[in-house]
Structure formats: C-alpha cells, structure tokens
Amino acid sequence: MATIQAAPAASRATIREASRPLWRNPSLLMGATLLAIVAGLAIFAPLLTPYGPIDQDLLNAHKPPSWAHPFGTDNFGRDVLTRVLYGARIDLMIGLVPTAITFVTGVLLGAIAGYYGGKIDTILMRVVDVAVAFPFIVLLIAIIAMLGPGLRNMFIAIALVGWISYARIVRGEVLVARNAEYVLAAKTLGFGDARIIFGHVLPNVITPAIVFFMSDAVLNILLGTALSFLGLGPQAPTAEWGRMIQEGRQFIVSGEWWMTTIPGLAILVVGVAFSLIGDGLADLLRVEERV
C-alpha cells in the first residue's frame, strides 16, 4: 500500500503552536518576570541594603520614608525596606514549599483513588469529605495549636490539609481518563500500573492541577501571612510580611502607614505574579492540548 501523507490539518496545528511562543503569552511573561524580580531581590537582599533585617536602631524608630530609609523605619528603628526584602525569602517559601508538598501528595493520592477506585477510593474520599467539612483556617489553627507556632509547623499544617483540593481535581479527571481507550490499550499491552498512571493517565490530566498550583501558591501566601499575623507563623524578630503588618497595625492610627502598607504591597505584587503565571500557563497548556 502506498504511503499516506499526513492530513493538511496536521500542518496547520503545528503552525498554530509555533506562532504562539512564550513572548506571545503576555500573562505568563509578565508574571514570570515579576516573580523573577522578587526572587532576585530576596536573594541579593544583603547586597541591596546596608541594614540587617533585625538590626534595631531605637534612636531612629518611627521614622517616615527618607533617603536613608526609603520605606521608613518601624517601632524598633528597623529599616522597613530591608525587612521587606528579607521577608520575601520567607514569604516566597511559604508560597512554594507547602504548595509543592500538597501538589505532589494530592496528585498522587487523587490519581491512586481515581485509578483503582473501590475501597481505596471510598476511604480516601471520605477523609476528604471530613476535612472539607471543617472550616479550612480553623483546622489549620487547631493543628498549629497542637504543634506549636513556627514556620515549620505552619508548613506541616498546610501540608496536612492542602492536598485535598489537588486530590479532588485529579481524581475527577482520572475517573474519566481511566476509561479512555488509550488507557485500556495500555492495559491490554500488559503495561504495569505505575507505567500507566505516570506515563499515560497523569500527563493527560495534570493540567488543571498545575494551573491550580499557581492560584494555590497565592492562597498559601495569603494564608501564611494571615497565620503569622495571628502570631502562628515565624516568631519575632523574623522579618515576614504578615508579621510586619501585625506589628505595624497599632501605629496606623498615629499615621505611620509605611509599616503596614509596604509589606501589604509586597504581598500584592507576589500574589499578582503567581496569578499571572497561572493564567498564562492555563492558556499555554490549553493550546498544547488541542488534540
């Protein structure tokens, strides 16, 4: 039989993808740039500022923005700019570390529950139902109350609760994909379960979870700052945005806005960066998925 040429539709699909390189995806580009800038500032903080994040200078406390202290000083005379820069290290970690842990565990558990079904699925999903029945933040506070405050325990608390969303997203997708004929084909070809789950099912269902990862990173930063605002996160004198807002809160009435506004803006910028990346990724992966 003569060789058959690929359908013209094929070449069109290729062109469409090629015509949408990274720079044509403004959300992703802007978000990634913003995040890279924040990360760069956090990493090079010691080179960018002459002060230390916990250096007190009580003679210069409560100073409004000036050339020496562009974002003013707090009630201990610590430079707010310096603390915001160093704080970025912790807050980016809050955005990424627990989110990464929950992503991996949630995706794995969701995939296993969805793929095998039966008892494993029932048990896992009942655990999810119970966890979802509690108000999220109350559950976190309860866990941290048991473990004691601090950054590590905050991560543990978020990791214990946060996987649920990923498990639900992925399980739903796997329930559909496991009956797709390419999965059945993999089974008849005698492929092992691990190969089928990781090589055939997950690559086709992971997109929504990746997109959710980005919004979840924002949520976790907000959550982390909220928890440390409540005193459950990293303890004083660590520079962390939520904690800075909490400490500056009592001076808002006396007009010392910089102690709270600057770390607040920092949270906003990082949040926007992650959201833009999430939007951009959703866009990018959708294009790729056009089958």
Binding site: A180, E181, Y182, L184, A185, A186, T188, L189, G199, H200, P203, N204, E289, V291
Partner: peptide
Amino acid sequence: QMIFQDPYSSLNPRK
C-alpha cells in the same frame, strides 16, 4: 491484542 473503536481516544495524545 485488541484494536479499539475510537481512533481519536485510543492513542495517548501526549506521546
């Protein structure tokens, strides 16, 4: 072995 019905879903789109 088996040949499947739907040529659009019987191949893994990612491979």
